[in-house]
């Protein structure tokens, strides 16, 4: 009697997948979101570490629709498009071959459908704060708090702007002590890489903490 389960070497089992040998398997893709208001340095930060010039990618936004994966309803005249940044870098020397995708996420909350799309399955988010427009960071910060995506806050030091200490920004944005707040220059790859490392470290802590069920949330995170 034929088995209903295809054998591993059954060609049907690999239909529509690459004929390349497994040694050449595609690297695992991880995503990080860089959020911030207009001019906060998103494109600059993506470009500082990306192996390609950041691409500006467009997507439709239909009003009052969560169905971002469909053009249906586009006939309605209110269709708009929104652009976001995309950059990537490969990490072939990681213990597991990895490719990191970076998404620059526009700041206004009318793009919230896109925010969900960019955030799905992501490692976490860097919220870039331009201290000249601190208020534009409130909405993204509460969005990531609400969906439970780990985030760190990176304060850009723009020339001529008043230099805030990270703790002042933490207070202004009402961030809990567990959220890392750092200063960075989005133009400098070593700064941006450091911020990404801070985010990954923070995400590891969150992942370990969320595994301890019913633990008081402050006990381990805020130590």
């Amino acid at each position: 009697m034929p088995s209903p389960t295809p054998r591993p070497d059954d060609p049907a089992a690999v239909l529509r997948t690459s004929p390349r040998p497994h040694a050449d398997a595609a690297p695992t893709v991880l995503k990080i979101v860089i959020a911030g208001g207009f001019g906060a340095g998103k494109t600059t930060a993506v470009g500082a570490v990306s192996e390609i010039t950041p691409l500006s990618t467009e997507e439709y936004l239909t009003e009052a629709s969560a169905d971002v994966d469909s053009l249906a309803g586009i006939e309605a005249k209110r269709t708009t498009t929104v652009a976001f940044d995309f950059g990537r870098l490969s990490l072939p020397d990681a213990p597991v071959p990895l490719e990191l995708f970076l998404f620059g996420m526009p700041g206004q909350d009318r793009f919230v459908d896109l925010w969900y799309d960019l955030s799905r399955g992501a490692v976490g988010t860097v919220v870039l704060v331009d201290t000249r427009r601190m208020e534009s960071s409130f909405t993204p910060v509460s969005f990531f708090e609400d969906i439970g995506l780990p985030f760190v806050v990176a304060v850009n030091q723009f020339d001529g702007a008043h230099r805030y200490q990270p703790e002042q920004v933490r207070t202004a944005l009402e961030l809990p002590a567990s959220v890392p707040v750092v200063t960075c220059d989005a133009r400098d790859p070593n700064h941006v890489a450091g911020v990404l490392l801070t985010l990954v470290g923070h995400a590891v802590k969150n992942a370990s903490a969320s595994r301890v069920h019913h633990a008081p949330t402050t006990t381990f995170q805020d130590a």
Partner: peptide, 11 residues
């Protein structure tokens, strides 16, 4: 967490 550790090492 394993993938996150690999990402950290790779960066």
């Amino acid at each position: 967490t394993q993938l996150l550790a690999a990402l950290s090492a790779g960066l």
